[in-house]
Design a protein around this nucleic acid. Structure first.
Lengths: 345, 345
DNA sequence: TATTAACACTACAACGTTTTCGTGACTAAC
DNA sequence: GTTAGTCACGAAAACGTTGTAGTGTTAATA
């Protein structure tokens, strides 16, 4: 086993001082061409690579960014991670990942652990529990301590930081319009409680589209799911609620689901009731993931461009890390999503 | 903005030495009860948290483990990450993630970046390209430098390190047997090229099951996919090849797919040919993910317990990091997978 | 009264870097 | 022959922490 070599060892080996080695490796003109070459050759031979920990300590900054998301086993978040990782590598940064598992406590703990100087800044999408509690002290504190934070997807107005969002409301309106265009007039909305910003915004878009089309808003056509914990608990409840709604309101001819999982649940119910997609009921949902792609029929979706969101977020964060002027105002980027038409509408 | 406070600043504030503060915070009996309490109160007031970078440098080890996987946007790998993260948090470690994107070069670069002292050890599933090239110098070198490595899923015999694998061959045999039990005798196998260990092993299990049942092995019933790059390129090719096979061999009454995506492709083809699942063709696949779960009909699958694999891998790695005796022999853990019967068989 | 022991604390080195500020040796100019 | 200037390199501090080895004071023992 050959342990990693340090500058000090290299210096001893070469019979020169530590400073000389350091300067040679950094190609300083202070050192003669000859010595530089010798040192560099030795360094290469011994496979010297600088100790990043020492560098971080010295420079008082790290080349690592922290990503805190509720889940990785979730297509959208995985896409975001991919995007973040992409630009991180390109710009010479590492990515530390932490999963809140939709739990407030875990989010806080993970954030504090990360903030202990391992990390330069955060990219976060808060857990549902955090949003419900509206307790953002950990995020505020991090910002207070001078670490930049970028919020994405689930955004919180009272936090002043860079944000990457999706034009949720607008595209939900578009999606609703898309259904109306297909001559579906009784659209059921499958959404989350309003404390989740994306759910709220999408609901707003839905409402706006109906209003514009002059269709009265029926509250019984909106199913809001509590959505607090794991999907294996809430899905059966959602399915039975939906089933009841469909039975009691046979005029329903379309469903707008706020995410893919809800759409999958909807499909299951529709199948059980022996209705056809899209003839009897059209279906459109957010999140353009594998479920929609490989479903029967493939679903029309709203592609949220998770990778793009990750890219924007990472760039925003790294820009912030590398900028001198700390007082630049916060930026909010909107990533436009688009409707991917398949066969469910 | 209140910057993070250091021991030195605390010491100045309190009018004692740095050592006293350090020892007080660590509750050393060397320091009087009184002083200890005072220091701790101050530390709490100023929200002191130790600088992990400095600790890492001092202790010559970090509390961070690196995970290198081909993709996050992939149910199985996401599950593994979840498992790793779970035990990492529990045991006080951080998780650094890197995506190879199935590229050899990216894998090597990322690994080298990570290895620059940020990380204590690695959990890796090599990229397809790496497996094809059979170039494992980067992994060997890392091990040489004394960093523990745990390989999972895609395993390589010539690397001597801890491993977490799935009893692929055995369970593929079981899956095949499952189809045979349903009275399906002409089973098509949708697999990868042999250089991917999981593909190879599953193929072996398939062959063994047929042999045991006394059914002759037909090479035209095995479709091996190159599978080198992104799925959007290989899937159409796979689909057309499969379609041809199904047309030319109408006796085929079952398909064993080596992963979910292949199964989804198979479903698409079956649908196009207007055949029924499972009556005309039964379908079973590896990876118990969202596609299988929400497909029509829901697919019978082999659950690989990704989370469990991640848990085992992380524990193996952290055990290795924390053990004194460096020369303990390598361990290979087998995580048993099981067949989840749904409606496609 | 002199020695020892306990106590409560401090000084300092070390981890691996970079960088500032020397410091000799040599050369060139006066 | 003195002074100034360049060149090539080294010493040391700093980043934040911990642990070892002091250090001075007081109390107990011989």
């Amino acid at each position: 086993m050959k342990k990693k070599i340090t500058i000090k060892q290299l210096a001893a080996e070469l019979g020169v001082s530590v400073s000389t080695v350091s300067k040679s490796l950094n190609n300083s003109t202070e050192i003669s061409q000859e010595t530089r070459e010798k040192v560099q050759a030795f360094a290469k031979f011994y496979n010297y690579r600088p100790n990043n920990i020492a560098l971080s300590l010295k420079n008082k900054k790290t080349k690592t960014i922290g990503v805190i998301i509720p889940e990785v086993v979730h297509h959208f978040f995985a896409m975001v991670v991919r995007g973040v990782e992409q630009v991180a590598v390109k710009r010479g940064y590492n990515v530390l990942i932490s999963l809140s598992n939709e739990s407030f406590e875990k989010e806080v703990i993970n954030m504090e652990t990360f903030a202990d100087s391992l990390i330069g800044g955060f990219i976060i999408s808060p857990s549902k529990e955090t949003l419900k509690k509206q307790d953002y002290h950990h995020i505020h504190q991090t910002i207070e301590e001078g670490m930049p934070v970028v919020l994405f997807d689930r955004t919180v107005p009272e936090i002043n930081c860079d944000k990457v969002i999706v034009n949720d409301s607008q595209v939900a309106q578009l999606a609703t319009q898309h259904l109306l265009d297909k001559n579906k007039k009784n659209i059921l909305l499958l959404t989350t409680e309003d404390y989740i910003s994306v759910g709220r915004l999408r609901t707003q878009g839905y409402i706006k589209a109906l209003k514009l089309a002059g269709i009265p808003l029926e509250n019984r056509l909106i199913i809001k799911t509590e959505d607090s914990k794991r999907s294996d608990i809430i899905l059966p409840a959602l399915e039975s609620e939906l089933k009841t709604a469909l039975k009691e309101n046979p005029e329903i001819d379309a469903i707008l689901a706020v995410n893919e999982i809800y759409a999958a649940a909807a499909m299951r119910v529709i199948r059980e009731l022996e209705l056809n997609i899209p003839e009897d009921i059209a279906l459109i949902c957010f999140t353009d993931g594998v479920i929609s792609k490989y479903a029967t029929p493939p679903l029309t979706t709203v592609n949220q461009h998770g990778t793009q969101i990750g890219i924007e977020a990472a760039n925003l964060l790294i820009d912030r890390l590398e900028q001198k002027d700390i007082s630049e105002p916060s930026i909010t980027k909107v990533v436009a999503c688009e409707i991917v038409e398949r066969f469910s509408t």
